[in-house]
Write a protein that binds this DNA or RNA. Structure first.
Lengths: 352, 352
DNA sequence: GTGAAAGCGCTAACAG
DNA sequence: CTGTTAGCGCTTTCAC
């Protein structure tokens, strides 16, 4: 049974009020306390192993000092993201992480739990499930709880978003490939079914770049399954296989392949090895994300570094904090810059 | 301002008690309610957008239905671990994740927060910092809160541990290499400074296997820095470099290298490419962990699959649950089996 | 300097 | 079938 203020009060022969003030040290209404009393109380509290009960505190002043972080999974630099968030919200707030495992249904359940736990704000990565939209809307409109979105916006809702510059990522990536002399550049993406904003923007960036260069677009979108599906590795492998099979069948093959994310690129590399396709001799490959593995010498994937999760978390945390403090600048979005990283899976074909 | 039972009661013209029971449906002391009333109350509650305040509930019956999960980082299959845990504790309990970023100091802060949040049990990965030990001890002895340890025990404390069979992992790994004809097998490990149980067991397994075969042990332990340090990639790279440099200097080089974990193995592969060392022709390499990348064709790392995080989480969750339900089988440890996976970084040298 | 008392939102006796 | 009341652990007026 945990130690309470009352018990300490009894031991010390004072009232709970005194204990309460003594233990918090700071005195809101400048409550004067005898130093001697304070010391004695603190000593007793320590001996008894007192831990303040946050529940009671929260119930009283109706603030939990907790924010909810809702992610679909832990795959892509979630740790950096959380660190970024924690860095700016601590020590005033602490964060509560919840995952919905890429399933829209869980997304709603999780948010419900957040509400019950009385989080004061939410940083969330929208699943893309249209059915979840009303829930986000309720949260913000009905309950007035501040929400900051990570990586992608929600169609129809004017919520602040912190994301990397998806449009620029594919635009710049494509331009870079063009500068290397590539004219036939194929863009391959997974799962558009839910119309994720990020996916759309990326596609758009590619299209823009090709249009601007007067080149023909070659787009291959695979995996109409939901997110849950494509994130599974064996499935991703299948996607890679089908992309490659289609490429092999073409009479006039693309010289460069630009894929949605680095994981898919890894699978492509893998399948290429199996099929005897040489990268970058036969095919230049570029990914998006610059995940931990891409930098290894034996991978050396050319990619667009797009998801600096640390800074993203920091920005999101700051935005949320400002909203919690009343500055309802609800539609101030933050777009983080991207960077094209040329490594060894792309080559120049100028003059060939 | 959130909707309370009282408000609903006023709207419905009944008492809060009635509302409370009506909204929960189940009636502990078989409280009979007019169906009509119940329906009306539920409707009003829904219209008003009522969310139960878990804080109040928890404060009342002194149970939060929350368990704390304390990890050092999110690197190695944390998602599977959490899923495993959630799978068995839900829906009765929900989990609160906290990270201490490999710093013992944070470990204690995190645990303190857990206490304040009144978690009912804790699943933790001990950092190895000796200074944290008394805190674990307090938690379990003074506060009587059930703790299940992940992956490694705490010296001197009799807490239940769920971990993979570290001893067998290196023993079997080494035996396998021996069966491939290797006589000179070097074992390289990082950071023994804190004397992590897992690290010790692994070393032991290797030593046992070499002794049993009558072979000479070759051990290289690098990175006397704390855990925080070696987990950083550039540092791991340095470790790999130093291991390789030392290997190159030997007059009689080991034919096989067995390293502590797959990430280090990746770095070794990388450094070997840079140095022109051919794997497995010049050197057979085996890791531990079977992380996501190890299975890729272009990596194809031979390794000991040792950390099935999913099952580990499941076991830990079940153990904790049984402890929460009063069965204080405090020292019932769970050891999960390992499996040697031979891929392409090892080769047989029998008859050479 | 210190204490008594009210109340945060909710549940569970105990009465009607 | 429903209401009154007390109280979970804590903070905060207000009074002494």
């Amino acid at each position: 049974m945990p130690v309470t203020l009352k018990e300490i009060a009894q031991h010390a022969g004072v009232s709970t009020t005194t204990v309460s003030f003594a233990l918090r040290d700071k005195r809101p209404s400048e409550r004067p306390l005898a130093v001697e009393t304070v010391l004695r109380i603190q000593k007793i509290a320590h001996q008894l192993g007192y831990r303040p009960n946050n529940l009671a505190k929260s119930l009283l002043n109706n603030q939990t000092n907790t924010i909810g972080v809702l992610l679909s999974n832990l795959s892509f630099g979630a740790e950096e993201l959380l660190e970024g968030i924690k860095g700016v919200i601590a020590p005033e707030y602490s964060s509560l992480l919840s995952l919905y495992n890429s399933e829209g249904q869980n997304e709603r359940v999780r948010m419900d739990i957040f509400m019950q736990q009385r989080v004061e704000g939410i940083i969330a990565a929208f699943s893309g499930d249209p059915a979840s939209i009303p829930y986000y809307q309720d949260l913000t409109e009905k309950y007035g709880i501040p929400i900051v979105l990570i990586d992608r916006g929600i169609p129809g809702l004017d919520l602040p978003v912190v994301r990397s510059d998806h449009l620029a990522s594919t635009y710049e990536g494509t331009r870079t490939l063009q500068r290397l002399g590539h004219k036939r550049i194929q863009y391959a993406s997974v799962s558009m079914s839910r119309g994720l904003e990020s996916t759309c923007l990326r596609l758009q960036g590619y299209c823009d770049a090709m249009k601007d260069a007067g080149l023909e677009q070659e787009i291959r979108i695979t995996g109409e399954k939901d997110f849950k599906e494509w994130v599974r590795m064996d499935n991703l492998r299948q996607v890679a296989r089908s992309i490659l099979d289609a490429w092999l069948m073409e009479k006039q093959r693309a010289t460069a392949l630009f894929v949605d994310n680095d994981w898919l690129a890894y699978e492509i590399i893998q399948e290429c090895m199996i099929s005897g396709i040489k990268i970058p001799q036969d095919l230049s490959l570029m990914g998006i994300g610059d995940y931990a593995f891409s930098g290894f010498t034996f991978v050396a994937l050319s990619t667009v570094s797009a998801q600096k999760q640390g800074p993203m978390g920091k920005e999101a945390g700051e935005l949320l904090l400002s909203m919690l403090n009343g500055q309802r600048q609800s539609s101030r979005n933050v777009i983080l810059p991207i960077e094209v990283k040329l490594r060894s899976t792309t080559r120049s074909i100028i003059g060939q």
